[in-house]
């Protein structure tokens, strides 16, 4: 299997997962990448994403598996494909991997918030529990973000304070940190006070999955 690591930043964070799928197909077609098609009644290019990135969250290193017919040199491919991506999407690395995405259990996120909001935010995440309602296909469930996520302050850049969040991101359990920022914004009435970036995936031993 050919694995692509790519980033999705800037305005591209507003491209939904479904639209990203279509966008990737078109990038491959533009770059004339010989991608393998499923052999069904309605053939479509084989593409599997590691985990859907919620709309509005940046991705620093997202993963996508494809199958190639007669794969050219990966370094050539990388150059060719990067000429064809829209603003905000870049391919970082192309490599072989046989490790299935099902071994991903968690994801690491970077949360940035402007310094003047930090006292309020610290108070918010310092509470004993942060109950939120998560909408799923089978209805709404109540969860406590304090139990689901690890949140820690890691540093500061240019008037922003940075936190690291580790949250479940697997087939069985997936908790988006957007729930945290939405709950905070709801509480404080602020709009888009928080920016989020997914930086890495982790396996069950908390080792970076690549």
């Amino acid at each position: 299997m050919t694995r692509i690591a790519f980033s999705k930043k800037g305005y591209a964070k507003y491209i939904s997962h479904l639209d990203l799928n279509r966008c990737m197909q078109r990038i491959m077609a533009r770059a004339e990448i010989p991608i393998w098609y499923t052999q069904g009644f309605n053939p479509h290019p084989y593409m599997v994403f590691s985990a859907a990135l919620p709309t509005g969250i940046c991705g620093e290193r997202e993963l996508l598996d494809i199958k190639l017919v007669d794969p050219p040199e990966y370094s050539v491919l990388l150059e060719r494909v990067n000429e064809k991506t829209p603003d905000g999407i870049s391919f970082l690395e192309i490599y072989d991997s046989d490790r299935d995405f099902k071994y991903i259990e968690k994801a690491v996120y970077r949360l940035e918030i402007s310094d003047d909001n930090v006292p309020m935010f610290d108070e918010f995440i310092g509470r004993d529990s942060i109950p939120v309602v998560k909408k799923t296909k089978s209805g709404e469930i109540n969860i406590d973000l304090k139990e689901e996520m690890q949140i820690k302050k890691t540093g500061e850049i240019d008037g922003f304070t940075v936190y690291e969040i580790i949250a479940p991101c697997g087939n069985d359990r997936n908790i988006s940190p957007a729930l945290l920022s939405a709950a905070y914004e709801d509480k404080t009435g602020q709009k888009s006070a928080v920016s989020l970036t997914r930086t890495a995936f982790l396996d069950n031993k908390s080792v970076i999955f690549r």
Partner: peptide, 17 residues
Amino acid sequence: SVLSSVSKPSWYIGTEL
């Protein structure tokens, strides 16, 4: 905040291919 307030933000980002 404009883009994160609407249901179809990609209609308004203007960076399409």
